[in-house]
Amino acid sequence: MADDLDDELRRLFSDDRLDVHVSPEATDAVLRGADRRRRRRSAMATAVAVVTLVGAGIGLTQLPSSDDHWVGDLLPTSVPTSASSPPPSSSSSVVPTTTVIPSPPNPGGSNPGTGTGKPTSTKPRTTTPSAPPPAETAGVGALVLGMSEADALKTKTLVEPSSPADPEGKCVAYATTSVPDNNAVIISSAKGIVRLTVPSTAKTQRGIGVGSTVAEVKTAYPTAAQSGTELRVEMTGTPRWTYVFETDGSAVTSVRKRLSAGDCPGV
């Protein structure tokens, strides 16, 4: 009986009547549609880039002159631990509440570690650059690693439409309002956000961003491990996550945060 059904199914699926006539226009229609999708993404990415640049410009003009504000207000992050406590004004230990620090556009400048240097000149810090990594958070802006797709969409920072990030359809990719790359954010249906790309104008708490040299990364993050053209730094905190500094061999070309327990291939 079962064999009969097996045979019938095989016979049915090899039936010529399954064939569907292909219109001569079908290929062109697909090509037009694909091109339209690609151009729509490009246009969106361009618009996002322009908005980002304008936003960065406005943000810079509003930077507080007082030194100990690390621009936390400009790039708010959902920091679960210390966000509610304002930094004590009494001097010494500086506990930044954000992960990334936007750097001003650097016309012709090639020293990403210093930026314009403006904010760092007035008051000496007691923290040293080689201290253990501060508790950098697993977030970028309002997005946090592990956040569900629904919650991420609520932040209004994802640019739709999403695109599949793997053939199985378990993971989807989005551009964001601050990163025009279509794979800026990758979200797993099971694990939530597994990749967050840091805006190219931003720097980590240790001053690393796009354009930083490999040596600067290794100095700032002594535990950085080379993996192909990437430098990876395992960070502490919950959930466990990793900084991934993609390089062209000499300089950082992108910075992203990766959920260590992610389940999307190639993240």
Binding site: F13, L18, D19, V20, A26, A29, V30, L31, G33, A34, D35, R36, R37, R38, R41, S163, P164
Partner: peptide
């Protein structure tokens, strides 16, 4: 056609997936 059960949905499905893949 085998997946969806009718040629209309088959054409739509192929078109949608190929557009995404092509982009």
């Amino acid at each position: 056609h085998a997946l969806t059960g009718n040629p209309h949905d088959a054409a739509d499905l192929v078109q949608a997936v190929l557009e995404k893949v092509g982009s």
